[in-house]
Nucleic acid binder design. Structure first.
Lengths: 114, 114
DNA sequence: GTTACTAGTTACAAAAAGGTTACCATGGTA
DNA sequence: TACCATGGTAACCTTTTTGTAACTAGTAAC
């Protein structure tokens, strides 16, 4: 959680920062986007789908799991596989997620128009 | 704009990344939040309000201005003052902004409950 | 025995983000 | 004259983030 200097802590502006603290960065929202929209995915599938390195993905998945935003399940397959899924709590982010998808698409369109 | 490896570029997951590319980071959404909700603010006011350093604020404001998300106005006061305002385009972010404020507040509440 | 697949981890390097301090020019005030 | 405030900028440094390459362990196919 972000530490706030002087102002009241439940100020709207700092709430924005708190959200970014949990799901900011280059990859977390994209991982959630995939798991929420496509459903359960394996580690290796995410690597290929996203073009992310295993090291970074592993770290991001751990952090998301600690914040209860995804769940991890190890499967008894020949080479063991691990499945990641969105949790109920991660679904509380759908408004943020959808708004960002919408805005990103629109912004890219605007830029291409130039 | 983020460069995408192999997948189709208008994929929802990459749209999320595109949004983060423009308004991600520790400060940009907070600046927009303040300008959208409080209205026009001067440079020095933002520094005090946010607890951000002048160097970083200056950089962030420049980047937001380049993306047409804020406008800058130099005023003919005794020591010149500079006013920053949200633009019409920045208001297209209100959905993202409001969703993030709402989620951040709720998340902090959950954490305190533990 | 060798190769391959799985999901990671480790060590290392590079880049990006964020921060501190000192400084500038302007003009008003004590 | 010296000091204060304004909105910056430049040099420098630290921390965080991201990436690459090599390696692990278990099992199965060749």
């Amino acid at each position: 959680m972000v530490k706030h200097a002087k102002t009241e802590c439940d100020d709207a502006h700092f709430a924005v920062q708190d959200t970014l603290y949990v799901v900011g960065g280059k990859w977390k929202m994209m991982i959630l986007s995939i798991l929420v929209r496509f459903g359960t995915k394996r580690f290796g599938e995410l690597v290929k789908l996203m073009g992310i390195s295993a090291r970074i993905l592993s770290k991001e998945l751990n952090e998301l799991e600690q914040n209860k935003l995804i769940s991890r399940k190890v499967c008894n397959t020949k080479p063991i596989t691990v499945e990641y899924s969105a949790t109920a709590y991660s679904k509380s982010l759908h408004e943020v997620l959808n708004a960002m998808i919408k805005w990103g698409r629109n912004h890219k369109k605007k830029i291409r128009e130039k």
